[in-house]
Design a protein around this nucleic acid. Structure first.
Lengths: 164, 164
DNA sequence: CACAAGTGCTTGGACATCAAAGTATTTCCT
DNA sequence: AGGAAATACTTTGATGTCCAAGCACTTGTG
């Protein structure tokens, strides 16, 4: 299904016609949402043959960047900014795929470490190649636009307390 | 839990250190994802007191923009670019809240029309006010940045066949 | 040293989305 | 006219996310 008009512009016209406020903000927010859906869809499609989705890939990438190839569950959630329950779920999937294992923390009985297995390290490399091949879904953004979007959204994230 | 560094920049450094490709694309895509999470979270928080989320609000807005206050389920999915099954689910929720009703199409026995009820029209107006009050979650983007992001992402959507 | 408070993780429940299969109705084609 | 194909929607099942509650372990305080 391919619309022959931009539904966001159409919504903006209706918004104005009904005297609803903040049309520009609505259009920017909606464009952001829609662009995200496209990018996420392309990324997940590229990763599906590897038995990964983006969340699981992010965990593998994070682990492969560490010295020991392991991190506490909580640290993973902090860095990827997802809920602890989601980390539990994601690690369970990665464990079922044989990409990571869960081990007890040597000093703290509360903590569980997720440890990268060789198969996980290998698949993470494959996934990085697959994602680079599609430019992370943003090849539709030329380099200057890509830099603009990145800079503007980094400012936005900072303004909203995403990091300090 | 507030990181004192930008996890995306940190990921970029690791990416480069491991000789993984397309770092700029990775950073742009990740920033887009994270910004979307922030915006969506703020929007849903603003709508929660009204017994709405963004998907349900979009349906009410779309219906309130039509002449008759009603649309076939399929048209709703096309315009909002969501799966037909999601439309069914969303309309069921709106129906349970007393915001819309489902009626048979007069000429086509296959088609179901979603029709806006007075309560739904009222709540849509309230929701529009609530969303305008938070600038759709993008008040962290100053007007020029907002325009840039909107323009760049519209170009991106167009390049990816979101509309023609 | 004991116990309250805090921390780390998992579980269960509520939602939302999508894909695929199923049902009903209409349209197309011979 | 009659059956195949297309269309419109719903249902079911698999995923994934969050929140709130629960459990286990550790830390801080008197």
């Amino acid at each position: 299904m391919m619309l022959d008009f931009d539904p966001i512009e159409e919504a903006g016209r209706n918004w104005d016609a009904h005297r609803w406020a903040a049309t520009d903000a609505m259009k920017a927010a909606t464009a952001l949402t829609r662009a995200h859906q496209i990018v996420q869809g392309r990324i997940d499609a590229a990763l599906a043959p590897l038995d990964l989705n983006f969340s699981r890939f992010e965990v593998l990438a994070l682990l492969s960047f560490t010295q020991a190839g392991e991190l506490p569950m909580g640290k993973i959630g902090d860095r990827l900014q997802v809920h602890a329950a989601s980390v539990t779920n994601t690690i369970q999937r990665l464990e079922a795929s044989g990409f990571v294992e869960r081990v007890a923390h040597p000093d703290d009985g509360r903590t569980v470490l997720a440890r990268l297995l060789p198969a996980g390290r290998a698949i993470a490399g494959d996934a990085a190649v697959a994602l680079a091949a599609i430019d992370f879904g943003v090849d539709g953004l030329a380099a200057p636009a890509r830099r603009r979007v990145h800079a503007d959204l980094t400012g936005f994230r900072n303004a909203n307390g995403d990091f300090s």
